[in-house]
Amino acid sequence: MKKVIIIALLFYFNINAQTDRHKWQPVNKVYQLKQDNGRDYSLDKHSAGSFLLTGIRDIYWLTFSDLDGDNCPFHPTCSTFFVKSVKKTNIVQGALMFADRFTRDSNLFKGKDHYKRDETGKLYDPVNNYTLNEKQIIYIETGSKGKSVHEVK
């Protein structure tokens, strides 16, 4: 209870706190509604491997994934997760990470309530948490709403 009050108080002070933490400049507000940027189909030309990988991903997206509806509850989606994990680690570890992600994605038995939902309602499940490098784990508090993501160092 005490903790709740403190968090509520912190939140309250946050609202009323002066935001002038730096000398800001005038801002020209652009009158635009928020638009979903959609997928990034760009090919990665840094190496032959990643070029091939992003190419295969694009073909999968264009012919299959874009047409069979919104099925993946995660953010990033499984295909993006795979590409990112391979880029971050290597093809073998990336494949293992993908197999694990695919298993978790197919989990029908228990609610996925230990993931945090992002703004669009997707379950936030970053690649960083699965590289077996403890320092990179971004631990996400569930049960609390909002965008804050806490990093454990």
Partner: peptide
Amino acid sequence: ALFYGGNIYGSISAAQIYNAGIRFNFDKD
């Protein structure tokens, strides 16, 4: 083989995330 390996890999990372959660909550408190 892929999913067997992935299952072992995933168990390790799940344990890591669990432990990170404990550390996170301790630090926060």
